[in-house]
Amino acid sequence: MTAERPRTSVNAWRPSVPGISEVFHAHFTDHAYPVHTHDTWDLMILDDGAVDFALDRRLHAATGTAGVLLLPPGVPHDGRTVTTSGFRKRNLYLDDSVLPQRLVGGAVDSPVLDDELLRHRIHQLHVSLGQSGDEFESECRLSFIRERLHFHLDALRPLAPTGEANRLAGRLRELLDSRIPVGISLHEAAATLHAHPTHLIRCFKQTYGLPPHGYLTGKRIDRARHLLLDGLRPAQVATAVGFHDQAHLNRHFTRHVGTTPGRYRRNLTAPPAQPPPPTVVV
Rank of each mutant, 00 (worst) to 15 (best):
H252Y: 12
L129T: 12
R5P: 02
A165H: 07
G79S: 00
E135K: 02
L69A: 10
G183T: 01
V51N: 13
R179L: 09
S110Q: 13
R148Q: 12
T40Q: 05
R148N: 05
G67W: 11
P73F: 04
A165W: 04
R225V: 04
D114P: 00
F24R: 13
A3W: 08
Q246K: 09
I20W: 03
V257A: 00
D95P: 06
E174Y: 09
V257Q: 01
R251P: 03
N250L: 02
F151R: 14
F151Y: 12
F204Q: 01
A160P: 12
T84Y: 03
L249D: 01
Q206Y: 05
Q236A: 14
Q101A: 15
D95Q: 08
P212C: 01
Q101T: 14
H256K: 15
N267P: 05
L125E: 09
L159G: 04
S110F: 03
T8L: 15
T83G: 01
A240G: 00
A238G: 07
T198N: 03
E147N: 10
L92Q: 12
V108A: 04
D177P: 04
G262P: 10
S178D: 14
P234V: 07
P234K: 10
D30F: 04
V241P: 00
S97Y: 02
Y93F: 15
E135A: 08
T162F: 02
G133M: 03
E164N: 12
E164W: 06
P76F: 07
L227Y: 09
T207F: 09
A50G: 02
S143T: 06
L210M: 13
H25Q: 14
T40I: 00
G209T: 04
F243Q: 06
N250S: 08
Y93R: 14
